Amino acid sequence: MRIGFAGTPVFASTALQALIDAGHDIAVVLTQPDRPAGRGMKLQASPVKMLALDHALPVLQPRSLRLDGKYPDDAGAARQALQQAAPELLVVAAYGLILPQWVLDLPPRGCLNIHGSLLPRWRGAAPIQRAIEAGDRETGITIMQMDAGLDTGDMLLEAALPIAPDATSASLHDELAALGARLIVDALAAAALVRRPQPADGVTYAHKIEKAEAAIDWRRPAAELERRVRAFDPFPGCSFELDGVTHKVWRAEVDSSASGQPGEVLQAADGRLVIACGAGALSLRQLQQPGGRRVDVAAWLQSNPGLAGRRLATPAA
């Protein structure tokens, strides 16, 4: 099939590689403009762009697709290029730009989205993180016929995936990326797919992860904070303040046998750092100091002695 593809991160490039391997004719690839990244803040191409260039595929990088928006020249050029490429269908995976109606209407077979949840649960920008944060036991991939709403289109194909008790957003992302790649290939190979409207019940929204959410509020239950630590790995990472310095927490375990005032350091010796929470306590296992790397708690404690009995601050309400 002659298709267009729109995507930006590794989640999307995994699907694009699968479509290439399946022998589809990729007429055009849309991805986000190059962004500054790394310590040198040099412009860096997206994983989708790098893969597309490796396969000599035509790449479009408009800043917007809205003809009446801030960058009408970008949108107009993209529209002309898409019309010339004439894809039968557009596959979309974590693209990062809203598709206006003219894009949805352009391919004769419409636009299919690879969404990282079992819709209608976790519509929106951060379905992987929010599923872990909420303590969901499973998630999955939905192949959806796109419409003008926010992940509201009819479902074509779904596959579930259990969420491991120790899953992070990084590990679950990789599992879902592989599943999404397989499912979109299956969807395009199917002789016919039944379109099913999404149920009206069970709708939840996976709001974008904000950096402000990173600060650990020790007044929250330990189980909730442990899930958030995993959900925010690798971005933005959970953190706490110690003597005005921000430290990140990358792995933690619930200690239901310990208790104290929220933020109280109950133990800081023998390779254990246990902090009281609103319910139970959190045993921090892997941390990171500014400018450093992730280390186990024993190594971190060597650089931060004498914490037992201290009270860690909680974010302002």
Results as ranks from 00 to 15, higher is better:
G7F: 09
G7R: 05
G23S: 15
V29R: 03
Q32V: 02
P36E: 06
R39F: 15
K42C: 09
S46H: 07
V48W: 00
V48T: 04
L53F: 08
A56G: 05
L57S: 14
V59T: 13
L67M: 14
G69T: 15
Y71T: 14
R79K: 10
A81C: 08
Q84A: 14
A86N: 15
V92G: 05
A94D: 11
Y95S: 07
I98W: 10
W102I: 04
D105K: 04
P108I: 02
R109Y: 00
G110M: 07
P120H: 00
P120D: 01
W122H: 06
P127T: 02
I128F: 01
Q129I: 01
I132F: 02
E133N: 03
G140V: 15
M146L: 14
D151A: 11
A160K: 14
P162N: 11
S169W: 11
I184N: 04
A187N: 06
A190N: 10
A192V: 12
L193Y: 12
V194F: 04
R195V: 11
P197T: 15
Q198A: 05
Q198H: 12
Q198V: 07
D201W: 02
T204M: 02
T204Y: 03
Y205R: 04
E213D: 09
A214L: 12
D217F: 09
D217M: 06
A222H: 03
E224W: 05
V229A: 03
D233I: 00
V245D: 06
T246S: 13
V249W: 00
R251F: 09
R251D: 14
D255M: 08
Q261L: 15
A269D: 15
G271L: 12
C277W: 05
R285L: 08
L287C: 11
Q288Y: 06
G291Q: 13
V297W: 00
A298I: 01
N304Y: 00
P315G: 07
A317H: 08
